[in-house]
Design a protein around this nucleic acid. Structure first.
Lengths: 153, 153
DNA sequence: AATAATCCCAAGTAATCTTATAGGGTATAT
DNA sequence: ATATACCCTATAAGATTACTTGGGATTATT
């Protein structure tokens, strides 16, 4: 479950290159695809999605290309996933009220929990070689009661 | 991103019914599908996956049916998602070493973080009407350095 | 023993989503 | 001017998900 799309992985690798090259010179698609072994047209679509999301900006014309729209420490994994794989939403029913979602408020809680995990890792963490340590993670819920023998809920 | 499959949602609703009816009498598929408006054959496949995962057990023959294999407080969302949507793995490359994954150890950290969130909510939380409070959630990483103007990483 | 209820197993089809390609434009630095 | 590079839309192939179909094995009840 929760597999990353190849589009996301490809876009992320492109962003990593942009982060490593620095925020000064625009990098043309052709240079990115040379390093990534992708077709220009395919990567172009991914970069356009990233641009619409405000993560990269582009310079048109000769010597143009793409660069990060802001520093790598301010671009989170959540930002990138949202741009390339859509928003984090377990169910896209209106106001979480389709008949299929048993307790929508629990989906909300889990989405929030996952979002904050994803928002704490940035493009900097991915593009650098600095060690990463996950220190703690918790979602605290009320204790479940003891199972009543023979009883339902 | 991270949408729940309809199979998962259907299986979860079936589990919710089993939890509410209690652990004594087996509930036949026909009774579950009557409440859920699903075809017997479709729900059957979902229940078989849950059975293979050890979340429900079955009683064959007349008056048979399905019941929870253990108490609802001991069945986590992670268990159910794993059974119905496969294991939580961002990339299914061997040992996280395909050329597409920039920093596999970060995927490991995020998967761990998400797994613990999903493992803290149980079928009891979903099947009951008890209020649920998400109190805290955190993944702590080293601070990102300040962006060096003009420099890459 | 016969019967009806029920779980068990395996394929196969239809619908949907993802991935990737292609063609034709528009803007701009040189 | 012109080459470079971004911008937009359509669509076909492939993979995945959703669902159907057909039959068989097990067991409580009569």
């Amino acid at each position: 479950m929760f597999k990353l799309s190849t589009g996301f992985k490809a876009g992320l690798r492109a962003l990593t290159i942009l982060a490593q090259k620095g925020p000064k010179t625009p990098i043309p698609i052709s240079e990115l695809t040379r390093e990534l072994s992708l077709s220009d047209k395919y990567l172009e679509q991914l970069l356009m999605a990233l641009r619409r999301a405000g993560l990269v900006r582009s310079v048109r014309g000769a010597n143009g290309g793409f660069l990060l729209a802001r520093e790598a420490t301010k671009i989170t994994i959540l930002d990138i996933m949202t741009a390339l794989q859509g928003p984090l939403a377990f169910c896209d029913c209106e106001a979480k009220a389709c008949g299929e979602c048993v307790r929508p408020e629990i989906w909300d809680a889990l989405e929030l929990s996952m979002s904050s995990s994803l928002a704490m890792i940035t493009l900097y963490h991915l593009a650098s070689r600095d060690p990463v340590h996950v220190m703690a993670q918790s979602v605290v819920l009320p204790d479940s009661p003891v199972w009543q023998d023979g009883a339902g809920i």
